[in-house]
Amino acid sequence: MAKSRLNWTAAPWDDSEQLECAMVVPETPDTATFTFRAPSGAWFDYQPGQFVTLDLPVPGGNVQRTYTISSSPSRPLSISVTVKAQRDSIGTRWMLDHLKPGMRIKAYGPSGIFSSHRHPAKKYLFISAGSGVTPMVSMTTWMWDSGEMPDIVFVHGARSPSEIIFRERLEQMANRVPGLQLRFTVEHTDPFRAWHGYLGRLNQIMLGLMAPDYLEREVFCCGPEPFMQSVRDMLIALGYDMEHYHQESFGAPVRTEAEEPVIVDVVPEEGVKAEVVFTDSGITTPCSETDTILAVAKRSGLNISSGCTFGLCGTCKIKKVSGEVHMVHNGGISDEDIEEGYILACCSNPMGRVEVEV
C-alpha cells in the first residue's frame, strides 16, 4: 500500500515554505487549475473561500497576484487555485504559459474573511460569475465533504456553456444529493450543443425562479464589480435583508474585517423629494424617490406605453434628457440604449430632478 504524503506529525503549512506545483488541469479557454503541495509534506489549513497571494517571476520582475483557493480544507494534502486570464493579465498569463509541475514559487497566506465558516446558516444562496465561481466551489466542496446534506442554491453566470468553470464537478455532486441545486445562466449558447438552462443576464425574475425562498438564505456573491452591483440592486429591490449578504471582490480581496469596505448602494427613500419634468408636455410633477417615472406620468395625466411593468418587455422605453434615475430592470433594455440616455419608465426611480422626453 502506498504511503500517504500527509505528515500528521508536522505542523500545517505556513508561507515560510515555498509551494511546489504538482498538477495543472485545463478547465475552460484561458482557464486552468494549479494544484500545489508542500515539499515537506505539511498539510494545509484554511477556511473555504479564503485566498492566497502568489509571487510570480514574470519577465521584468516579480509580481504578486491574489487568487481564491478553489480546493477545500477538507482535502488537506494539497491546495489549488483556478485562474482565468483576461486581456491585460500579466501574472495569470505567465502561469498559464510557463508554470509547470515541479516548479516552486513563493506564496503568502491563506487569508480573507469571505467564508461560510464565518456566517453559518441552514440555507445558502451562492451567486457568482466567471472565475468568481472559485470560492463557491471551495465552500460547496467543504459542505459536501462534511457528510451533512447541504442546502445550497448555486447560481452561476457565464458567457457560454463551454465557459462554465467546474461544471462537471458541480453536476457530479448535484447528481448525488438533492440539497445542491445548480442554476446556470449564459449570455449565448454554443453551436450544435443543446442548452437547457437559463439564457441571458441574471435578473430579478430569474432569481425568483431559481431560488423562490431567497429571503431565507445567506447570500454569498463573487464576480466582476458590475455584476455584484447588479446583484445587490436586485436583492435590495426584492426586499432582501442585506445584513445576510456577503461579497468578495476580484480586484481587492479583503484580508481582515478592518479592511472590509463600506458598501454604499443607491436605495430610493420614501421621504426624499424628487421631481420629474416631462419636457414634451411642459409638465413638472413633484414626487418621491420611491415613485417610478411611469407612476408619476400616470398621476400627471400622461400616457407612456407600457406592458409588463417590471422591466422585461421594454415597451416603456423613453429618453432621459437630464438628471439621474435608479433603474433595476429585467433585461428589457440594452447597454447601448442606456449609454444613449434611454430608460425604462416602469422601473426607474427619479433621484432628484429628472427631465424626460414625454
Rank of each mutant, 00 (worst) to 15 (best):
W8Y: 13
T9C: 01
A10Y: 00
A10C: 00
A11M: 02
P12W: 03
D14W: 00
D14C: 04
D15E: 11
V25I: 15
V25M: 12
T28G: 09
D30R: 08
A32E: 04
A32F: 08
A32R: 10
F36Y: 00
P39F: 00
S40T: 03
A42P: 00
W43A: 01
Q47H: 15
P48N: 00
G49E: 02
F51L: 06
T53K: 10
D55M: 13
V58R: 11
P59C: 09
G61T: 12
G61P: 05
N62K: 12
R65W: 06
T66D: 04
P76E: 05
V81D: 00
T82C: 04
K84M: 14
A85H: 12
Q86G: 06
D88V: 02
I90V: 13
G91D: 08
L99V: 05
L99W: 12
R104Y: 09
G112L: 06
F114Y: 07
P120H: 14
A121H: 08
A121Q: 06
Y124R: 03
L125P: 02
I127R: 01
S128P: 11
G130Y: 06
G132Y: 06
G132K: 02
V137Y: 10
T141F: 09
W142D: 15
W142Q: 11
W144M: 11
W144K: 09
M149R: 06
P150W: 07
V155C: 06
H156E: 08
R159F: 03
S160P: 00
R169K: 15
Q172E: 15
M173N: 07
R176S: 15
R183N: 08
F192K: 13
W195K: 05
G197L: 08
G197I: 09
Y198M: 11
G200C: 09
Q204S: 15
M206P: 05
M206F: 13
A211D: 11
D213N: 14
Y214H: 01
E216H: 02
E218Y: 05
E225S: 08
F227D: 12
Q229T: 15
V231T: 13
R232L: 09
R232I: 11
R232G: 10
L235Y: 03
I236M: 06
L238I: 12
Y240G: 07
Y245W: 14
S249N: 06
F250T: 08
P253A: 03
T256I: 14
E259N: 15
E259D: 14
V262F: 07
E269N: 11
E270S: 13
E270C: 09
G271F: 02
F278G: 02
T279E: 13
T285E: 04
P286S: 04
S288P: 08
T290S: 04
V296H: 04
K298M: 15
R299T: 12
S300N: 01
S305Y: 15
G307Y: 01
C308Y: 12
G311Q: 14
I318Y: 08
I318W: 11
E324P: 00
H326C: 07
G331T: 12
I333A: 07
D335G: 14
E336K: 05
D337P: 06
E340K: 14
A345D: 13
A345V: 09
C347L: 02
S348W: 11
S348K: 11
P350R: 05
V354H: 04
V356I: 03
